[in-house]
Amino acid sequence: MEPFVRTTGVAAAIIRNNIDTDQISPGLYAANTPKEKHAAALFGNMRYLQGGKPNPDFILNKTPWTEAEILVTGENFGCGSSREAAAKALRAFGFRAVIAPSFGGILFNNCFRNGILPVVLPKDVVQRLAQDAEHAAGGARITVDLEALTVTDTDGNSYNFTSPVQQRSMLLQGLDEIDFTLSMRGEIEAFRNADKALRPWIYTPGLNVG
């Protein structure tokens, strides 16, 4: 996976609860979709007007937020369908971190695997960061640091967050998760052998004994 240690950048605030993955990336079914298409799909229904022209009122169509790297958003971000295109669209647009009071579980995990850090912070902190994000035109920048587990706003206020230990370490190092797991092959095989004795029907679907 693509490593993430820390980033300082423009933050865009879209404070709405329950932005589901249908909204983050509508449509897109082709296999091996190129990055540009993922980027173009992001928030498609809000970002474009009928006929496909960019909606001038949508935050990501306005400078400097066209360059945003951090998204500050509402509760339960990325709920709904499991589509990984949602995480891919966020990353392809340029986002490296998403800050929200809570996330849909599948998107939370999909973020890590696509080089995006999902950060959970309390609602009031998210509100304050959203206010900071509005001043990006005046030079406001937010820093998200996975190594230090902190988010720092333009005024230097710093907020701690937690991150799953193993996923954090893989993201920091940019490890290939499958290679990492397969390095534990011996342990996996040992588990399966012991489990096979206890639950043989798992390993032979339709097991017919007797």
Partner: peptide, 23 residues
């Protein structure tokens, strides 16, 4: 039983395991 993303599915296919945080 729970839903996962495509890269988690790829991981399961390759290893028949999945890293998870207990809900």
């Amino acid at each position: 039983a729970w839903g996962i993303g495509a890269s988690e599915a790829q991981h399961v296919a390759a290893t028949q395991t999945l890293l998870q945080t207990k809900p």
